[in-house]
Amino acid sequence: MKSRIALIVYILFILLPIYWLLNMSFKTNEEILGTLTFWPQNFTFDNYIKILTDPSWYKGYINSMIYVSLNMVISLCVALPAAYAFSRYKFLGDKHMFFWLLSNKMAPPAVFVLPFFQLYSSVGLFDTHLGVALAHCLFNVPLAVWILEGFMSSVPKEIDETAYIDGYSFPRFFTKIFIPLIGSGIGVTAFFLFMFSWIELLLARTLTATNAQPIQAIMTRTVGASGIDWGVLAAAGVLTIVPGIFVIYFVRNHVAKGFALGRT
């Protein structure tokens, strides 16, 4: 019983700040800045309507979703074969290659912001969705390889060998037999890829101007001449949480199966 209470307290601790944001998003600015109220007295959808009808606002969400999805597709496509290679074969420099990949997750993005800007401008990827997606591959691909390698290592090698004896070619075996076997692993990987790409700000903001600007960068606009538009800021914040809820909901069963990156 005591443990139930502790868990509920923790969940309340998680939910309270989010509730406060949600609460504010349904208030008018007068109410927010007037007296403190625990729920909206003059319930209003105006803040949401403003965001969802103004293209310069809602395009930010579309941009973010495009580059996050692109990044997930690219990362998974290149990471799946690589993770298979790391989990099944020994090859020249494999361990060092693996660590080098991981080391890119350690490079502080602040360091790379300027060269990134110049590199992506010089190849014409500045302010494109593909550009941001590729830049996020820098830390997402290593992570994907790391997670998938763990899951693949737990699939017995006899399965590969039997399939080859049965006359499967490598691409057919990989897509028809192997990928379905590590479904949970792919789900968990997709969760992580979504998470790190969706929440990243520095690179996404630096590499975009108007065409591919993410919602996080647009949010800073709420600071206007007349102070901060709290209601709209809160509504925009709430809308950035929504896609995450869907993603968690879809992967919740995989999470239960093997969030442990397959390495238990």
């Binding site: 700040p17 949010m219 950035t240």
Partner: peptide, 27 residues
């Protein structure tokens, strides 16, 4: 699971905004 993982999927600057609002003395 869904409730506990909620904070993980909030963009970094939105996390900052949430706490900035949450800790203000007036609002």
């Amino acid at each position: 699971l869904v409730l506990v993982s909620l904070p993980l999927l909030i963009p970094l600057n939105v996390v900052g905004t949430i706490w900035q609002i949450f800790t203000r003395g007036d609002i």
